[in-house]
Amino acid sequence: MRPGDELPPLTVPVTRTLIVAGALASRDYQDVHHDPELAREKGSPDIFMNILTTNGLVGRYLTDHFGPASVLRSLSIRLGAPNYPGDTMVLTGRVEAVDGDTATVRVTGTNGLGAHVTGTARITVGGAS
């Protein structure tokens, strides 16, 4: 694990099912995450993924790569282009810094519209908790 290491990309098909399942699993019943008609009334072309699902997918991306013994210490994300149904998001990551057994990783999720999410995580590898 060295600064500059690239994580293999993860391709996430942004299905309507993923958006709704993610919203419900995160207890988020905002209508814009499950009701296309109400989403349109609020100026959105369709339902879109909630931030908690994006957060969960980024977390999964990191722990998939660093392994089940790794421990996420912090995660900061910012959303940009929304994830609408039918799009595909590709997550990529790069190790920015390494401090002992803890890496700082920059993550980007890009969809057909642009950068959906940019974020920074700190993750401890090797299971020290």
Binding site: V32, N50, I51, L52, N55, V71, L72, R73, S74, L75, S76, I77, R78, L79
Partner: peptide
């Protein structure tokens, strides 16, 4: 709309 989420665990 939510724009940022910063978490420490």
């Amino acid at each position: 709309v939510a724009t940022d989420c910063e978490q420490e665990y």
